[in-house]
């Protein structure tokens, strides 16, 4: 599926017009992950967020003095690792590919530069990121 069609199906980019989506497309880097690939580990610095085009990512949490456990599975159209781009904190969980998983990653620097250069994109992306985090909180509370 062409990148533009994938981006249109991601809530993070809701409200962006074709030109704005093209700008997003310019900073997206495609990757294919095989089963078991660790995208990032809990405690790592946050340097990018990831959009899942197909496949699944397991989000696993390791409590202090405990064993890691799967907390959530994210599939098509979901965003992984966005918290770190907002608060600059370290990764709060480990993200692992389940099966072959196609992703697009957006580097922190590219994301911040785009949002600062085009504040209309910046507003829409931040609004959508907040709504995505809200949705995840509602999921967790159920």
């Amino acid at each position: 599926m062409p990148l533009m069609n994938i981006l249109k199906q991601v809530e993070l980019f809701r409200g962006l017009n074709a030109l704005q989506l093209e700008q997003i497309g310019n900073i997206c880097r495609p990757e294919t992950l095989v089963t078991g690939t660790v995208l990032f580990r809990q405690g790592d610095p946050s340097d990018k967020m990831v959009i899942i085009a197909s496949g699944q990512i397991e989000i696993a949490v390791t409590p202090p003095h405990g064993e890691p456990y799967p907390a959530l599975y994210l599939g098509e159209g979901q965003v992984v690792g966005e918290m770190g781009l907002i608060d600059a904190g370290s990764r709060s969980a480990t993200a692992i590919a389940l099966g072959e998983t196609h992703i697009y990653s957006i580097d922190r620097t590219d994301f911040e530069t785009l949002c600062e250069t085009d504040t209309a994109i910046g507003y829409l992306m931040m609004r959508n990121l907040a709504q995505d985090l809200s949705f995840k909180l509602r999921h967790r509370d159920n």
Binding site: Q9, V10, E11, I52, Q56, Y69, P70, A71, L72, Y73, L74, G75, E76, G77, Q78, F135, K136, R138, H139, N142
Partner: peptide
């Protein structure tokens, strides 16, 4: 596009979120 939060009824298994058409 349907953004779906899948919640397991007993709470024993982690759920998931994905978009479906």
């Amino acid at each position: 596009i349907y953004k779906v939060s899948y919640v397991e009824e007993t709470g024993q298994y982690p759920g998931g979120i994905k978009n479906v058409e």
